[in-house]
């Protein structure tokens, strides 16, 4: 680990926690842990997850971020990053989602893998990922940043649990046999018009390549992927700002899923 002290790591976690708790975005934690020390940033992320687990939450999976070369270039990194999915982040197709639970939400369409067995080797390869995948689902990820104005560098987003917010899962599982995930067309529509388009190849060449990367990375850090975990494999196209209404993702050959954003709590507060 670099120069960030234990006190700095705890201060960073406290800042992010307070932002989420109070619904007030905070200033970047790179002020506390630096702009480049990814190990320190993952340590902050782990502190945050430990706090949530102590509050009674449960780990249900992981998410992979920064899977597009264009986004990696924007962050000055050459690898993806990852975060942890907790039980209270998971929604199903068409289930209303209160926008008030987010600070500055954005959405992107992805492939979700659900594992049928552990992937615990730091040398996991794509064939093992394919063999271990119980089924795949179309998914919408809601990303969110606790950092004001999304003013983030790589350490800010990693510390902030890879800017995770929520996930919306389709409800029709597909076996991976016969699917070429690199060749899935993706369209994310809002009010009937595509607001983001892309394909499986946009995610590191194929979503399965991203999952293999994640499996190696987390196994190396002693937190291997376990049977039953959901893995959100990374965006298939550009992220777009979330707003009230239905965002409808269609993954050609895989299925569809809708995120229904509501503002009831906000209206209630105003009334």
């Amino acid at each position: 680990m670099g120069d960030a002290t234990a006190a700095a790591l705890h201060a960073a976690e406290e800042r992010l926690h307070a932002a989420a708790r109070d619904g007030l975005a905070c200033s970047p934690v790179r002020e506390l842990i630096g702009e480049t020390d990814q190990d320190a940033a993952y340590a902050v992320q782990s502190l945050g997850i430990a706090r949530r687990l102590a509050e009674g939450r449960r780990i249900v999976g992981r998410k992979i971020g920064l899977t597009s070369p264009a986004v990696q270039a924007q962050f000055g990194v050459f690898t993806p990053d990852y975060g942890v999915l907790l039980d209270d982040m998971v929604f199903a197709d068409r289930e209303p989602i209160d926008l008030g639970r987010f600070l500055q939400p954005r959405v992107e369409a992805e492939v979700a893998f659900v594992l049928g067995r552990d992937l615990d080797s730091p040398t996991t390869h794509v064939a093992e990922v394919l063999a271990a995948t119980e089924f795949v689902l179309p998914a919408i990820e809601v990303v969110d940043s606790r950092i004001a104005g999304w003013d983030i560098r790589i350490t800010d987003t990693i510390a902030d649990n890879a800017s995770s917010g929520a996930i919306v899962l389709g409800t029709a599982p597909r076996r991976i046999e016969g699917l070429d995930l690199a060749e899935l067309g993706m369209r994310l529509d809002h009010e009937g018009e595509p607001v983001s388009t892309g394909s499986g190849a946009a995610c590191l060449g194929s979503p399965v390549i991203a999952v293999a990367w994640l499996a190696r990375e987390v196994a190396r850090h002693g937190r291997p992927l376990r049977a039953g975990e959901i893995v959100l494999s990374g965006a298939l196209g550009p992220m777009v700002a979330a707003s009230a209404g239905v965002f409808h993702a269609r993954l050609d050959g895989l299925g569809e899923v809708r995120a229904d954003f509501t503002t009831t709590a906000l209206e209630g507060a105003a009334a």
Binding site: A182, E183, L184, G185, M186, R187, P194, T197, G198, S199, G200, A201, A202, G205, G237, D252
Partner: peptide, 16 residues
């Protein structure tokens, strides 16, 4: 439909 644009065999753009 998924669309790929490749330059020299390398992926340059992926879309729909």
């Amino acid at each position: 439909r998924a669309v790929r644009l490749e330059l020299g065999g390398r992926l340059a753009q992926a879309g729909s």
